[in-house]
Amino acid sequence: MRKVEVMLPGCESLPDVIQDISPDLDSYYLVKRLPVVELVKEEFVKEILRKGHFTGISVGTRVDNHTVVAVLPSGHLILSVDKDLYQELGLSGKPSKYTGRNATRFVVEIDLFNANHSNGKKQYNRVLWSLKDRLNLTFNFIFSWEPINEEKVNFMQLTRLWDKYVLEDLSIVSHTIQKTQTTVVPKLSHNQSLVSTPGDGQDVSSIYEYIGTISCDANQSFVKSDALVPWAALTVHGFDDSPVSWWRKEHGFHKNGCNLYTILILPDDTYWLYMAIGTDDECP
């Protein structure tokens, strides 16, 4: 994720949990010029991928005109490539859903947990050959890794595996608390109609717009709202250039590549999940 926002309307003093937030991001790293082949090697799959939640994405390349790669905790490596590169690559993939009849973009998905993805198997050798000997694709890659049940010692394994590459610690995440003076907060309750008559400021788009004005620090005078009722909103911003989004469905970038969600928690423990998707996205 790119950024997380927590919004607590009508809250005078912040709860301690938020105040001294120091998310455990010890395993949030950037590795420069990493060849993709490192991500498919059996040793990496066995030592790292299978032993925790590894999520990674290439940065600095764009999903609408470059090559983008992502690794999911489910053991899938997803490569989104243009036509020329796809033909050079020699791995089977599917045409992208968003390029029309004459596909100019292809998505290659490699299941790293598949039984055939191991030393000596044909499929494994083919992938290795494509990504190493045929095309040596390299990326700047960011990843987070949470080992299951095991201590951080495991990380040493990763540094040993990737000792040729520069690993940069990104755990210093900036964290700001912003107090917004606002006189009005929309009143929310779980039984209200979310698609009420437009313009009364109580339908779901207006509420989302309200959250947006706060997060963009915008002028709020045009938002219609009501009495003060406590609720909380948590917004998580993903990457616009990710090749996948909800439930491993393809994600693209056309007019925008929105990839975020908001969880709005109401006092009676019900919640709303607002998934904002972009122009090249399938309804989750």
């Binding site: 700047n140 620090d217 917004t235 616009d240 250039d241 908001t262």
Partner: peptide, 20 residues
């Protein structure tokens, strides 16, 4: 974007932030 909160951050600026 049709979603206002998404304008509060642009992940395409991330690279310049990392000075890559």
């Amino acid at each position: 974007s049709p979603h206002l909160p998404s304008l509060s951050v642009n992940s395409r600026d991330f690279t310049s932030e990392l000075l890559l």
